[in-house]
Every structure is written in C-alpha cells, then in structure tokens.
Amino acid sequence: MSALLETKDVTIRFGGLVAVNLLNLTVNDGEIVAIIGPNGAGKTTAFNLITGVYAPTEGDIIFDGIKINGKRPDQIAKMGIARTFQNIRLFKDLTVLENVLIATHLNVKTDFFSSVLHMPYAMKEEKKMKEFACSFLEETGLIEHKDDIASSLPYGLQRRLEIARALATRPKILLLDEPAAGMNPKESVDLTEFIREIRDKFHLTIILIEHHMQLVMDISDKIQVLEYGRTIARGIPFEIQNNPAVIKAYLGEEEIN
C-alpha cells in the first residue's frame, strides 16, 4: 500500500540555517503520527512545508500520489490537508460559527452574483453550510458558544474551535501543532480521547506535534524525532521511549521514569 503522505528528502534553508534537513516522513491512511523534538528542531517548519506556506529548497512532498510542493496553501487545503497553528490563529473578531462557516467555503458552489442576490439556490446552500458548520460545533462541544466572539472563548475552547474549523474543510489528513500546549493533565487526557474520536468519526489521518509525552505515547502509532532539522529516530512509541539518542536529545532522564 502506498502512503497517503510522503516527504522525500525535504530540506529547507533560511539563509544559513537548515531548518529542516532531509526529512523523510511516511504517513499511511488512518495513522496517527507524532513529530517530537526540542524547541527549534524544525517541527512547525515541517508543517509549513507540507501545507505550502514554504516551498522546500530540495525534495518532494507527495500527497495521495500527487506532488504538492510548489502549490499554494489554499490549493493544498482544497486537496484535503488541514491544520491548526501552534499560536492559535482564529478569526478573532468573528463569531465561533463564522469561524467554522469560513472553513466550509471550499464546498460552496454558488457563484458570486447568485449569492449576493440571495437567490433561492444560494440561500439553500447557505442554510446547508450553516447546518454543516453547526454539526461540527456540536461534535466539538462548542454549539452553545456559536454566537460568541472567538477571542472571548477560554483558551482550551479556542484550541477546540481551531480543530473544529480545520475539520470543516473536510480534510483527509489533519496536522495538529501542539494541541495540548497550555493544558492541564485532565484536559490533555480529554484531548487524547477527543483526537481518537475525531480520527474514527471522520476517517482521518493525523500528524501531531506535541511536547506532552504522555499524550504522544498514548495516542501515536508512530513517532519521528527531530533535532536541528534532522531525524534522529523513528519508530513505535516503545522504541522511542527506550532510544538512548532520543533520551539524550529530548526526553530527559526524569520523564522516562
């Protein structure tokens, strides 16, 4: 079986800095893959490469059998890759519902003038999109906040909203950049459960960047460890936990025990 997403020797340089160096990442359909590594290892940059924010200096990114490096982020989103951001990037001044509605944009077929004239067909589609958006808000437990301004939500819910918004683009693969950042242990246990739930419900493949080791070890099928842009280890959680190079680079003695 061929991989859903594959990066082949992907490298990006910012001036003299090689932020991602010969990254080879293979993600199969339905897997949850974690990318871990110390600060500045190039994890977020890897996401930015996959989603088209940056074009790789070298190497290829293949999604669903198609080469996607060089495509714009909106084209890549359209093909079925959605993401969340490390520093939450909601549409802050808009309501929760509007945030999710914007993500349904990809599926809107009505042309500009029919929409503006509120033609019956356009209204029907708008109504359908609203229902669709609301279904994601229900799924993520945000429905009672649908008319709140996004920036007024508590931090944890903002993270959830970002996931809801990403889901509303109907992705095949979801990239989560530190979804548990700033969460307490109870919240991150809930999040683990939630990620599994959406994976099953929406038949997703997930790539996850996370510093929270418990979550990573619980949820991942595979883990890839980066340091200074290079892959220093890859394997199943058990292998990673006991890999001396990883322990040295990242985990630290106390977290293992």
Binding site: R72, D74, A77, L106, T169
Partner: peptide
C-alpha cells in the same frame, strides 16, 4: 495565513 489554510484563494 489562517484564511489561506482554510482554502481561501
């Protein structure tokens, strides 16, 4: 950035 990631050209 977020708008583009949501598929907006």
């Amino acid at each position: 950035v977020a708008a583009q990631a949501m598929g907006i050209n």
